[in-house]
Structure formats: structure tokens, C-alpha cells
Design a protein around this nucleic acid. Structure first.
Lengths: 117, 117
DNA sequence: CCAACACCTGCATATCTGTGCAGGCTTGTG
DNA sequence: CACAAGCCTGCACAGATATGCAGGTGTTGG
């Protein structure tokens, strides 16, 4: 689609039409990167378990997450730090307890995909 | 209130009910691991671009994938090896050309989530 | 047969990332 | 006040991984 003449010379495509479709499918590289980051967060079993817990069990304390997942509390903290930095979860402090909740609607929707299977 | 044996002592949950919900949400650890693997495959910008291309541009040759994504052909091959090993894509040989296509329906469904945003 | 092409592989490397440990901070409790 | 609970951080280390390079296989065309 967005072909510049110059580039087309380097282009020795086997099926030019297919390549154009592929380029269209990729679209904005920034968007791809953003989604890749999201998927990467879900791409580790421990974090995925944490997110599933957060998704269903509403606001939940850090130590309870550690209990439910079997992950050590320091590892949970590290994971939550990532999720916080990426805007996936939010923290609410209540005394010495900190409860986390899921705030990224895209991630929430992805987690719903798991319920089916 | 009588004390329940040992187990309950390890269970120092802040909100026991929430913990049970969280455990239910996690469900089968194997299933979590399987999905985490899937998400991990989508969690790298290059592979995500490849998968988006495969998703929309049907069966497509390796060199065309390299063209569309801007990734060197050897890197594309390496990525496709992973995707092949995980059963995400399949290869069809046609002379000296090998065309790949997306075969994992779960991944396909996930990629549709990208079209919306 | 030879050369170009499409693709794959092994290896070495640099980078990333998850984890455990030790310790610190804040808040509630005796 | 002293202590414990809940949570967080920095650091060091091990494991995973993406990438480039060099070279290999198999196919097509002259």
C-alpha cells in the first residue's frame, strides 16, 4: 500500500499483494509494541496467575495473592511493581494492607478469553 | 471458637473468602501454563508483527514476511521455528518457497482483539 | 552443471528477566 | 516503647532469549 518507488526496487516480493496485506495488518508499529508489552505481561505463568486472581477476586491483598498463587511475597511484590508501572493494576492502601485491583480493560478482556477454555 | 488444626495456622489469610475466589480463578495450573506460553509468543513485537501478517495475509512466504516486517530472514526463520514447534503455525512447501499459515484458533482469536484498537 | 534463490541451522554473544536474599519502611498491637 | 505484620526495595545471580554471522540444504533456471 504505502509504497515509495525507491523502496519498491528493493522489494523482490514473491507475492506483492500478500506483502501489502501483511503491511496493512501490522499497521502502526507503536500499537504493535504496546500490545506486545501487554501480552508479555501475561506471558509468565506466575504473573498470569496473579492477574487471574486479581481479575476475579476483586481488590485483594498482596499476602493473599501470595497464598493463592504459591508465590513468595517478595516475588509477588516484584511482579506487582511491573504491573503497576505498566498501568495494568492499581493499589489501594488500607492501613498496613495494600489491596490491588485490575484496571486495564484490554487485559481484563484478554483474561475473559481464558474462562472459555 | 475452636482452633482448626495445622493447616489453618499456615493459612493466615487476610480475607479468606477472597483467597478462595482467587484459587478458583486460577484453576488448573496446566491450563495457566499453556496460556502463558501462548501469550509469551505474542509478547515480542517482532513475532507479533509476524503473527498479524500471517493472520490477515493468509499463507505467506518467509521472505515476504521478512519484507513486510523488516526483520532479517534468518530472524524470521528462527521465530517461525518457535511458532511451528508450539503448533501455532504450519508450513506448506511449494518448490523452493515455504508458505506459512496460522493454525492456532486461540491465537487467531487473540489477534482479532487487536483489530478493535 | 552451475549459479542464484529461498530457506534453514548451529553457534556465540549480548541482553533481558525472574528469583532469592537481606534489609528497610510503615502501620498496628501488646 | 518494643515488636510483629504487611509490604517494598536494591542487589546479585542464574536462566532464558533474541540476534547476527557463517555456512548448510534443496530447488529452480540458464
Amino acid at each position: 500500500m504505502h509504497l515509495v518507488p525507491q523502496e519498491r526496487e528493493h522489494w523482490r516480493a514473491i507475492d506483492e499483494h500478500t506483502v501489502c496485506d501483511a503491511i496493512d495488518a501490522i499497521g502502526d508499529p507503536e500499537r504493535v509494541h504496546a500490545w506486545a508489552s501487554r501480552f508479555a505481561l501475561l506471558g509468565e505463568p506466575g504473573r498470569l496467575a496473579l492477574l487471574l486472581s486479581l481479575h476475579r477476586a476483586g481488590p485483594i491483598a498482596v499476602s493473599d495473592l501470595a497464598l493463592a498463587t504459591g508465590i513468595r511475597d517478595t516475588a509477588v511484590s516484584q511482579a506487582l511493581r511491573l504491573l503497576r508501572a505498566s498501568g495494568t493494576v492499581a493499589a489501594e492502601k488500607d492501613g498496613r494492607i495494600v489491596r490491588y485491583r485490575l484496571v486495564d480493560t484490554h487485559v481484563s478482556a484478554l483474561l475473559d478469553s481464558l474462562s472459555a477454555s
